[in-house]
Write a protein that binds this DNA or RNA. Structure first.
Lengths: 364, 364
DNA sequence: GCCGCTGGTTCAACAATAGGGCCAGCACTC
DNA sequence: GAGTGCTGGCCCTATTGTTGAACCAGCGGC
């Protein structure tokens, strides 16, 4: 079973118009949009959406007051028979990424196949270094994909793609002043909410175990967490932040000074579910019990968290909905639909687990 | 210029479905509306609208509780230009499978695309029930794939495929007297080796926390584990076996009687890395420390195990090599190469971690 | 200046679709 | 016989695509 590719009327019209252009139906100028709207029996808005795609392909050039000029068929539309591929940048082998990320990338791959595109995964730490220009320049020179998807992207990467003007979609948050289309979880809201949950339970010494990488989502997490604590009605509440690098050792290093204090925090919010695993097992090694001695919230979700005891209080995401949204945005990038405004962020569903409870008496 | 006739998605789907019916794609019953909705990537409402048109044409007849029956058209000319697709059977949504399994399936999918085949994933508990004949018959009637890949397959499934003679490859071990091509890890050798490692460390009361499902690989695990203990030079060594169902509660139920004994085991081998997570956190809840109080070995590997402290002693597999081997076997099945004898099993690499040590004095 | 045409932009109203939930009927397991 | 999990049938709401209209700025001819 093969899927029908272009479902919207606008896309169907674009296909049809492309065909007419190729046949040489019109010389010099296209019929006016109002005329096309009548003959094609579609509203002018819809016709304009179709014409927008042709314009993006360089087939026509609209001139205000005159009409849509047919661009010389000198080049046989190389943009059209270009290999329809999309590149995805990831920092690590897909097997080392969090399963949830692998899941939505996988699903996006399937969805793109149905649209006639192929997804190629490019993995490499060097794209994520402080000055990735060389590596990226070489990459997109070697792999002429129709568009790029950036996961876990750094600020330098995002800025490079803006400067370079290569069609791209950020899977994650963008940095201030970076105007790329993007889609992400609302980490700010998540961490603000998490702080509120812990405060309501009676905790007053909170800490966020955040990632050191300073990615946009992590910065947002930090902001949200601090907002949640400081804008609360509990002026005696304190918020600490410690940083890890996703590996066991760095989590241990981040955790140690917090726990060695005279008054250690009674509740932690942990970024990255791998780090949650490390945290939970490190606490167990120190003889601390979750949640009696310390409450835990996982900012991120992953299937394996469901096998832990107690079940982590966390924010659950459906990789399917994420992939669908990424697809629709990606198609906008690919078809260069003009009105590409990044949509609202995804707010995952809070799931109370057994890893949180009120602090021990005298501790709050 | 000709107008495009069917603009709504529902009409397009109706046209497409009519074509499939005429081709004789389906025998007896259409795929369920929910499945069609997924494969056609349209909402069930839209699919139902399309099916309504077919029903009005008398092509299908919906039966509540059963499905949409194909009327007449006893097309005995199926699969003329059969789509080159391969079906994979999995018991649960791919997101709930172990990440390592998802990884090799994903990689196999990519490899098959290069060979011109498409991989379709069919998920459902009912294919794994005690008598799956009905569900399987219906499945392969609805989805005429060129070959099938069985993961986590039960004995009844394997026997059904043998009887039915459908081209198929078992990703896993086969049961005795089932002569299907297959490829798997050598669980018997793994568990025999694991028992030997623990015995050499000085443990004498060992236990295997095995899966209840009695899948071929689990049966092999049990045999290998018992061999490892009983054929050792330590005649005082004991081997217990407890069963879990992959979920937290059943792991807890399996663990409790073992640990409540007067002389609980000092070392465990755990099947399924999710169960390893559950075990580790349940032990922590009881105040038992790994490895000082009890040693753990994970029979299975998965990326998230690397985030645990202490690092689990385990047997590591590379999903890439597994996928490559699966591809070559699958191509033999697809091309019906006569000499198809299943190759040697894959023996993963033993990796000593921090979760095993010699038993406490007086315990061994 | 006027007019009538062109594309560019915005808007509210509407229809199609997506994505749920809930129900009754059927087959299988326990 | 109770329980589970599938099926189609039906309902609801949110989102999205589409419509049809308005108004603007630019161009050419009168």
């Amino acid at each position: 079973m093969t899927l029908i590719p272009h479902r919207t009327v606008a896309s169907q019209l674009a296909v049809q118009l492309r065909g007419e252009l190729a046949k040489g139906t019109w010389h010099g100028w296209l019929p006016s949009e109002r005329v096309l709207s009548r003959t094609l029996q579609a509203s002018r808005n819809t016709v304009r959406a179709a014409l927008g795609q042709l314009k993006a392909d360089g087939l026509i050039e609209p001139v205000r007051g005159l009409g849509n000029r047919v661009i010389g068929a000198t080049h046989s539309t190389p943009a059209h028979d270009q290999a329809k591929t999309v590149g995805v940048l990831i920092p690590e082998p897909i097997g080392r990424l969090r399963p949830l990320i692998a899941l939505w990338i996988d699903e996006l791959k399937d969805l793109l196949v149905e649209e006639g595109y192929r997804l190629r995964i490019h993995e490499g730490r060097h794209y994520y270094q402080t000055n990735p220009a060389r590596a990226l320049e070489r990459l997109i020179g070697q792999h002429p994909h129709s568009a790029w998807v950036l996961t876990l992207s750094s600020e330098a990467m995002q800025q490079w793609f803006v400067r370079r003007g290569a069609p791209c979609l950020v899977a994650g948050s963008t940095y201030p002043e970076v105007t790329l289309p993007h889609y992400d979880l609302d980490y700010r809201a998540i961490c603000r909410h998490g702080a509120g949950v812990l405060l309501r339970l009676g905790h007053r010494r909170l800490a966020l175990l955040n990632r050191e990488s300073r990615r946009a989502g992590d910065v947002d997490s930090e902001r949200g967490f601090l907002e949640g604590v400081h804008r609360s009605t509990h002026s005696d509440a304190t918020a600490d932040i410690a940083y890890h690098r996703d590996d066991v050792e760095s989590v241990a290093r981040a955790l140690r000074p917090l726990l060695d204090r005279k008054n250690p925090p009674t509740a932690l919010v942990v970024s990255n579910s791998y780090a949650y695993l490390s945290t939970a097992s490190l606490l167990a090694q120190r003889g601390l019990r979750v949640p009696q001695d310390i409450s835990l919230i996982s900012r991120d979700d992953d299937p394996f968290l469901g096998s832990l005891v107690p079940a982590p209080t966390r924010y659950r995401v459906d990789p399917h909905t994420f992939a669908k949204k990424m697809l629709s945005l990606l198609l906008q990038v690919l078809k260069r639909t003009p009105a590409l405004r990044s949509p609202a962020l995804l707010l995952p569903k809070f799931t109370a687990g057994g890893s949180t409870c009120a602090p021990a008496r005298g501790e709050g």
